[in-house]
Design a protein around this nucleic acid. Sequence first.
DNA 1: CCAATACTTGCACAATGACGCAAGTACGCA
DNA 2: TGCGTACTTGCGTCATTGTGCAAGTATTGG
Lengths: 147, 147
Amino acid sequence: MTQVRKRSKAPPPSQRRRSPPANPTLASRTTGPLDALLDPALFAALSDPTRLRLVACIAKCGRGCTVGETAACCAVDLSVVSRHLALLARAGILTAAREGRVVRYIVRYDALATLFRSLADALDHCRPTDIACACNADCAEGTCDAR
Amino acid sequence: MTQVRKRSKAPPPSQRRRSPPANPTLASRTTGPLDALLDPALFAALSDPTRLRLVACIAKCGRGCTVGETAACCAVDLSVVSRHLALLARAGILTAAREGRVVRYIVRYDALATLFRSLADALDHCRPTDIACACNADCAEGTCDAR
DNA sequence: CCAATACTTGCACAATGACGCAAGTACGCA
DNA sequence: TGCGTACTTGCGTCATTGTGCAAGTATTGG
């Protein structure tokens, strides 16, 4: 994660976001070509060992897991877990739902599985065939739309 | 990426690694359960926008791309591109091959596609059924093998 | 062997990210 | 309304990472 610069001062408690914004529609990433599927934010969310462990933990607990339960999976402060889960939800990997006093996080199985399959398909489509790709001369020009 | 602490001083030029180590066998990650597939290093490699652009660029250029060609895809120094490509190769996403004066990098289409499909499958298997998961009480104990 | 091309690596620096602690907020129940 | 439980957020710290520049190494051709 490099060029994602978000540095706005937290708004006052009154107007502070209480319920997280709608999860980004993973579906919107599952249609386009390879570029559209290669979202740095998604991979960044999955690039931390602690977060991955949390995801794995929640993925296996059928019903949603609370922050406290999930925190038992790894040896970091509860506040850290809370932040990680919020981040994962923002990335569209988890869904959060408040149930009275607790918040349950659950993995967005379908969205993720669909996304990964789309990625695999997109890669297959990119695989070179016998016909040479016209963009060989220079990736920055010609028919290569990678930029 | 957090707990990956590698802080060894670079070895002297004489014993410095010239050819990169064999790419990690992505295949080894495509068999186990979800945990085995959730490799932080892989996602970390894909978490940088510049690197993703390089991957997309190379993915679409059927034959391997040289470092110089690839560098045309984005506005960073050639040395940066070189480092990114080496990292991607180390992560098993690209394969490097020296051809005379140039080095060609190519996407490991099959390995990646297989990995992503395995991930999707693993997620599908984790999806809760009607039978409640026995590990609900506490993710850190019981039958939940997420830790 | 020298020069040119094509990368790779050392070094310094700024920005980012993960973390823990402490304080703050939300919700349910007396 | 006051209290306890369950999270969330502010803040400071420290390690990691992305980047550019300059110097180093590899490979080919003269």
